[in-house]
Design a protein around this nucleic acid. Structure first.
Length: 297
DNA sequence: CAAGCGACCTGACGGC
DNA sequence: TGCCGTCAGGTCGCTT
């Protein structure tokens, strides 16, 4: 999926249309995505105003008038696009390659924006790993999807001290622990690889080895926390362009335009100055890891 | 409990 | 041209 930077980019693309808009009706193409859609999903949203569009980890969260939160997860292949009544894609937002434009449209929110214009926000998801749920705002934090979520990597909360308890004593490789949403919420396969390169740490290193014996963070863990934050901040600033099917405002299709240091660069030279290493690809818990075996230790 | 792995689903791409 | 294998941003749940 879209990892956190991509979800944040999607949020920014949707916020002007969705915030303050009224949901006139909701059209579903099927009763389920990855999970069944909530009971009476369309009925519970129709006529309600969207008070705010936020994000937590990789979830988009729409605060709905009356105390509900609409939580939306993009899975691996989910995307949104905005349509005007004429069916035109509003520039600057998120869109799929034209060939797939409508085939996997699953949810359509027909809106009246706060300016009184008609617009639709359409959720498209070929693989259907995405999902939506409706949660009472009261007690939101205890909901199974959210109660266990770890630290947001966008703010001051992510620090070596905060990470230390999750790393202490763990034999699992750094790659696995950083992918664990209960530890840091929002990292995915690409940005874990990138952050570990930035921190010069091997994805295979046992997580417990960057914690001191007394359980506090080592300097390496402190730096890792900083490097994760920098990696995510840079990716958000770049517009979360790790998506193959991200479309630029002018309609041109981007393809991994963010220049990754290691992800997808197997057999290519390490980008670190003065490093002669070559990027390697290995498989960890069934997923590709890219790293430089020379400068990442 | 931690850790590993298959499952879920569709599409794109490379090799033959 | 077509068929087959492999791979892809995630996460859930079962097995060791």
């Amino acid at each position: 999926m879209p990892e956190l930077p991509e979800v944040e980019t999607v949020r920014r693309g949707l916020v002007d249309v969705m915030e303050g808009a009224r949901i006139d009706h909701v059209v579903l193409s099927r009763p389920d995505l990855r999970f069944p859609l909530p009971e009476r999903f369309a009925e519970r949203l129709a006529g309600k105003r969207i008070e705010a569009l936020g994000r937590r980890a990789k979830y988009l969260l729409a605060d709905i008038e009356g105390g509900l939160v609409l939580a939306m997860h993009l899975g691996m292949s989910g995307s949104f696009r905005i349509e005007s009544p004429q069916g035109a894609v509003v520039p600057g937002v998120f869109a799929h390659p034209r060939s797939a434009e409508r085939l996997h449209d699953h949810v359509r929110f027909a809106l009246t924006t706060r300016d009184g214009a008609d617009a639709s926000v359409v959720f498209n998801d070929p693989r259907r790993f995405g999902y939506m749920s409706l949660i009472e705002r009261e007690g939101f934090d205890t909901h199974p999807h959210f109660s266990g979520l770890g630290i947001e990597p966008t703010g001051n909360a992510l620090s070596g001290a905060a990470l230390a308890p999750f790393f202490a004593g763990r034999t699992a490789p750094l790659k696995a622990v950083l992918l664990d949403q209960k530890v840091i919420a929002g990292l995915g396969n690409i940005y874990v690889c990138e952050a570990l390169w930035r921190a010069r740490l091997s994805p295979r290193r046992a997580s417990g080895t960057i914690v001191r014996k007394d359980g506090t963070a080592s300097q390496r863990l402190v730096r890792l926390a900083e490097d994760i934050r920098a990696t995510i901040a840079d990716a958000i600033a770049a517009g979360g362009s790790s998506l193959r099917d991200y479309r630029q405002a002018d309609g041109s299709l981007g393809y991994f335009q963010h220049s990754f240091a290691v992800y997808g660069r197997e057999d290519e030279p390490c980008k670190r100055d003065d490093c002669r290493g070559v990027v390697r690809r290995i498989v960890q818990s069934g997923r590709s890891t890219f790293f430089c075996p020379v400068c990442q230790r």
